[in-house]
Amino acid sequence: MKVGLFIPCYIDQFYPMVAIATMQLLEKMGCEIVFPLEQTCCGQPMANSGFNTLSKGCDRNFVANFSDVDFIVAPSGSCVLHVKEHLADAQNPEAAEFIRTHIFELTEFLTDVLKVEKLDAHFPFSVGWHNSCHGQRGLHLSSMSELVAPHFSKPISLLNMVNGLQLHLPSRIDECCGFGGTFCVFEEAVSVKMGKDRIKDHEENEVEVIAGGDVSCLMHLEGILKRKGSKVRVMHIAEILNSQK
């Protein structure tokens, strides 16, 4: 199975360890990984700011890079959702359609395509799980507190396979952290307040690590944690699932 690894731009630049963990994890599961070197970004920053029209160049570049694989996997619910919902290429509509239907967020790929049932992972820490909205409400990686529907969570069932990990859920199980793309700078006050409140909720459980599936949310929470000199770390789920003794 040939898997094209899509590494969102801010992960490539600032959180390479998340990309490395994603790659190693998928390789352990027997996937053949390719990382198309000319990839850049999914175009979401422009589109969510109202300039979807400006993301056409990104779209074309994306299609050119990811046409030659069986699946595309990314460690980011938000970017995957954007590609699924908005990727378009007038010159190459079929290739774009293939990508939209074959791109997966990491945990859904592990759960739904690779059907992972056990993991050789060890992570002896107290971990709080942060549900990122786009993965949850957009990609349906887990049930949502607003709906009357059966409970499930793809990332949490994976975390439950990790030895030594103690999982703690915050009291507001799926409230947004306030990152929201450019919202984090244009609505700085509310954005930071939302982040502080999520952190407080996790702190009540005395977690050592706040884990999530979207680095953008984690980067925002990390920024607040560091500013207040907290010892709590943020980690992407790929890093945890890839941890061994």
Partner: peptide, 26 residues
């Protein structure tokens, strides 16, 4: 000039990107 930094630290900048790592290691 930077609303991010008002109440948040910037992410630390690693010396190499994933792309650099990939080229070296894979």
């Amino acid at each position: 000039l930077n609303p991010w930094y008002k109440q948040r630290e910037m992410p630390e900048a690693p010396s190499e990107s994933f792309r650099d790592w990939y080229k070296k290691n894979r």
